[in-house]
Each structure stands twice: as structure tokens, then as C-alpha cells.
């Protein structure tokens, strides 16, 4: 079966407080950078076996929903590169 590289980008939902982002942004502001806002997410790369791009997207989407992201607090995006 062909392999596909995928990237899952996970971010906190906009209304959810991001303490790490707040603290990091605050330090950058103190260092003099003209920073407006900073939010921290996660970037996960995977290689999966699938019949085609559509199946790979479905598989990775499932993984994101079931484990990689916390749907209570986070949103995710899946990008699959054509094998």
C-alpha cells in the first residue's frame, strides 16, 4: 500500500485560555518586540499507509479526533501530502 505523509496542526479553541502563550508573549514584549498576540499549538507529522489520499485523510482525521487532539479544548487541521 502507498505511504502518505501527513501533518496535523492542533490549536486551542479561540475562547480557551493559553497560559503558556500568554507568558511567552509577555516575555517577547518585554524584550521589545512589537507583539500583538501569541498562541501555542502543536504540530504532528505522521506517515500512514492508505489506498489513496482520501483514505489517508480519513485515517489521520480519526487519529486526531480520537487521540492527538483534545476535542473539548482544541481544534485540528489535517494536511496530507500526495504520496
Amino acid at each position: 500500500m502507498p505511504q502518505f505523509e501527513a501533518v496535523v496542526t492542533i490549536e486551542l479553541k479561540p475562547d480557551i485560555l493559553d497560559p503558556a502563550g500568554e507568558a511567552t508573549g509577555h516575555v517577547l514584549q518585554q524584550l521589545g518586540y512589537p507583539l500583538e498576540q501569541l498562541r501555542i499549538g502543536r504540530h504532528i507529522t505522521l506517515t500512514v499507509q492508505a489506498a489513496d489520499v482520501a483514505q489517508a485523510e480519513r485515517l489521520v482525521g480519526e487519529m486526531a479526533q480520537n487521540l492527538l487532539a483534545n476535542p473539548v479544548m482544541e481544534t485540528y487541521q489535517v494536511q496530507v501530502k500526495a504520496g
Partner: peptide, 14 residues
């Protein structure tokens, strides 16, 4: 320090 956010020690180092 700084909640260990980003990486522990990274923000305090600045």
C-alpha cells in the same frame, strides 16, 4: 519559572 511554559527555564534565561 514562567510556569515552565515553552521549555522549562527558557523564558527565565531571558
Amino acid at each position: 519559572s514562567y510556569g515552565d511554559y515553552l521549555r522549562s527555564g527558557a523564558l527565565a534565561a531571558k
